[in-house]
């Protein structure tokens, strides 16, 4: 495929992500301004970080006047899952993915972009990822700006419903393979069950950390119970 058609495909696959981000980051923008940041600072955080839980925690650290070491540690704990995702994606990169492309594209590895990329059957090309990252970043940054600048303008009924977009997309990614493979279905159900347990019984566990614990446990179990043959 040509660079343009790769880019276009990634862009189209990224539209639900961008729309979902628009609504989620809207909330982040409101929160950041309420924590004492300016509109510019809030938007700049979204532009340079492109991560939801890490940014929210970062704003809390800034608002409470924490140290830079605390900031670094908080980001490391919440975002360490990206290292796992980056490692997973590194296994399915196309030959055209040279070092400079890796340097650039790694910036855009988020839960959602990872989810969609990992579910692709063909090897990942740089421009496929760029298309997806561009539209996702656009939604994330624009939403933050709008939320920070004019948080109260969107009707509540619309912003509430927009909260579902991202999760609907997640289901669209996990349901089809779960339908085809019992192993994937088992891992998905175990992970969901663990997540429910964490959510209701261990509320002190932060959201980002809970996801790591649940997903790693479920995947380890899956790898033991249902090891995959060569060439998945």
């Amino acid at each position: 495929m040509s660079r343009f058609s790769d880019f276009r495909k990634g862009f189209l696959h990224g539209i639900p992500i961008g729309l979902g981000y628009l609504s989620v980051s809207f909330g982040f923008g409101i929160m950041a301004v309420n924590s004492g940041l300016t509109v510019l600072e809030s938007t700049l955080i979204s532009l340079t970080n492109l991560t939801s839980a890490g940014q929210a925690a970062g704003v809390t650290v800034i608002a409470s006047g924490g140290t830079l070491a605390e900031m670094a540690l908080v980001q490391l704990t919440i975002n360490i899952r990206y290292a796992l995702m980056a490692l997973s994606l590194s296994q399915k990169l196309d030959k055209s993915f040279t070092f400079p492309h890796r340097m650039l594209a790694s910036f855009g590895i988020t839960d959602e972009i990872f989810g969609v990329c990992a579910a692709q059957e063909s090897p990942l090309t740089p421009f496929y990822m760029y298309g997806m990252i561009l539209i996702a970043m656009f939604g994330w940054v624009l939403g933050t700006f709008l939320g920070a600048y004019a948080g109260e303008l969107l009707p509540a009924s619309v912003s509430a419903a927009l909260g579902l977009v991202l999760y609907g997309m997640f289901l669209a990614i996990i349901v089809p393979p779960s339908r085809k493979e019992k192993s994937v279905l088992s891992v998905v159900l175990i992970s969901a069950l663990l997540s429910v347990i964490c959510y209701y019984l261990i509320p002190s566990l932060s959201g980002g950390f809970a996801v790591i614990v649940c997903a790693v446990s479920a995947s380890v179990l899956g790898a033991i119970l249902f090891p995959r043959e060569e060439e998945s």
Partner: peptide, 29 residues
């Protein structure tokens, strides 16, 4: 084989844990 299987399952497990039960609170109703 273990690591390859683990890496194959991890995206679905991550998305599942992120979605359940959060999706039920995503609209405030």
């Amino acid at each position: 084989k273990f690591l390859r299987s683990f890496l194959y399952y991890i995206p679905y497990a991550v998305l599942s844990a992120m979605t359940i039960p959060a999706i039920f609170y995503s609209t405030g109703n």
